[in-house]
Amino acid sequence: MARVVVVHGIGQEFVGPESLGREVGPALRDGVRLATASRLEPEDVECAFYGNLYFEEGTRSLDIPPWDETDVDEGLEIELLVAWWEQAARVDPDVLGPDVAGSRGPVGFGASRLLLSERVRAALDALSGSHFFAKVSDRLLIFALRQVHRYMTEPELKRLAQARIAEEIAEDTRVLVAHSLGSVVAYEALCAHPEWPVTDFITLGSPLGMRSVVFDRLQPPPTDGIGSWPGGVERWTNIADRGDIVALADRLAPRFGGRVEDVSVSNGVRMHDLLRYLTASRTGRAVARGLGG
């Protein structure tokens, strides 16, 4: 079994474990080789895949409805959408933030459905024009919101996603690398399984530090504003591009304690891209360290 397991995030639901693994494995091995001159074998890296859980059995992309602004749910989905909008405005000069994009007040509880729809429409338009989302369609943006929402609120989906990681953990697994929403799945799985032999947890573009939508909903819940340490992990390296909108809180040490090592990288114009993160030299060094290199 693999010494390194990689957990994907949102946006991988149209592939599978084998096809994604053919990209993830070489990218991670490149990162280690470029950073340390060490070489991993193909069998050292495995991909834990849960993307298909978001579709009913026997269905795929043709079953995504033509969602629009009226389909974004009040609460978690709107909170996440507006948080992405605000962050996009901070890092992208071409994006007007919610405070200047219109004369209406902010989206929130108690607003009329018409006002909510208008502001959601403004948020979708702003994000689709940002460098980060690069003209992503409304329905795919809403699908991303739904994936986060469903994982955070549906116990059975959460259980099944974490089980996909458990299937890949073996006696010789030492490093768990997790991207985007996958870092939330991996974190909760590690907390639930302190007996796992994983010594190094590496998070890439992680939303774990995002209050309300993610951090405050974690299992186990934070205590006095500090999240639990993930199981038996010895080292936690959090890697984020400062322009990565998903990694709203790009430093996790303030949320999970000073033992977290926060590291910055630059992924160019593909700030949240999984392969860019995996080939980064700082990711390679963190993986090599976990393997004793």
Rank of each mutant, 00 (worst) to 15 (best):
H179R: 07
Q87T: 07
T173H: 06
L291Q: 06
R270D: 12
A163V: 02
T199P: 02
E79S: 12
A163M: 07
P98G: 10
L116N: 12
P26S: 08
A288M: 12
L127G: 07
S103H: 07
P106R: 15
G293R: 13
V260Q: 05
I78V: 13
D241S: 08
V120I: 15
I78P: 00
G51C: 00
P65Q: 04
T199W: 01
V107I: 14
E156G: 05
W67K: 02
L127P: 05
R3S: 14
V263A: 05
L204A: 11
G232Q: 12
R113P: 02
P197F: 08
A144P: 00
L96M: 10
G105H: 10
M210V: 11
T279S: 14
D216I: 07
S183A: 14
T203F: 14
A83L: 09
D63K: 06
G11L: 02
V82M: 13
A144S: 10
R22K: 14
V213A: 08
A170Q: 06
G227C: 01
L40E: 04
I226C: 09
A35N: 06
A48N: 10
D73A: 12
G205R: 01
S264T: 14
G258T: 13
R211M: 07
P106W: 14
G105I: 06
F201Q: 05
R242E: 11
V233E: 07
G102H: 08
T70I: 04
P230S: 15
L278A: 04
D273Q: 05
G129H: 13
E86D: 09
Q147A: 03
P194I: 13
V7H: 01
D200M: 02
T237F: 15
S281Q: 09
T199G: 15
Q12I: 00
L252K: 02
L204T: 07
V120H: 07
A126W: 10
G110Y: 06
L190D: 04
H131W: 11
